[in-house]
């Protein structure tokens, strides 16, 4: 992991754009995550100050919602859908296979920061189950083989 100083200057900008609106905490955190890929713990006090709430409120919201990540994530977010339709069609096995393939547990990031493996409750593409989502691309009717292939293609293409 690189130890370079995190540039927190964009946070001020995000807060100043939204601070006056009621209920701004969640949208602000969403924007922060969009910029940094996660919500850096170093930014919590700054956000709390800017929105006139306690750091505990910020932390409470961050840990309540599954969308928010407190750790940096990989370049490719691989999400295995585990909704009912995907479950019935064997998404568990795809997830387990990707754990072996990427050598990380669900929720973790590979050492080279290339892949983060996640499970998602349902993306609503149930008719094409099981699905695997890599960043914004939804891959339909997956099998363990095909999911592996997607990873292979990315690994070959960019390394």
């Amino acid at each position: 992991m690189s130890v370079q100083e995190l540039d927190l200057s964009r946070i001020e900008e995000i807060i100043s754009q939204t601070a006056n609106k009621k209920g701004a905490l969640i949208p602000v955190l969403q924007k922060v995550q969009k910029v940094y890929g996660y919500v850096p713990e170093e930014s919590i006090e700054q956000i709390a100050d800017g929105l006139h709430v306690y750091p505990a409120d910020v932390y409470g919201v961050l840990t309540f919602y599954s969308q928010f990540k407190l750790k940096p994530r990989g370049e490719y977010i691989v999400r295995v859908c585990c909704g009912t339709a995907c479950h019935v069609k064997g998404s568990d096995r795809i997830a387990e296979d990707l754990i072996t393939k990427l050598k990380v547990e669900v929720g973790e990031t590979t050492e080279d920061r290339k892949f983060t493996l996640e499970k998602v409750a349902c993306v609503g593409a149930c008719a094409l189950a099981p699905v695997v989502i890599v960043n914004d691309d939804v891959h339909a009717k997956m099998s363990t083989d095909e999911a592996r292939k997607i990873i292979d293609v990315i690994q070959k293409g960019k390394s």
């Binding site: 909704g83 009912t84 339709a85 409750a121 349902c122 609503g124």
Partner: peptide, 12 residues
């Protein structure tokens, strides 16, 4: 907030 897994009526 269509959260039920296995449902996508609202999304559509």
């Amino acid at each position: 907030d269509e959260g039920d897994p296995g449902a996508f009526m609202d999304r559509s």
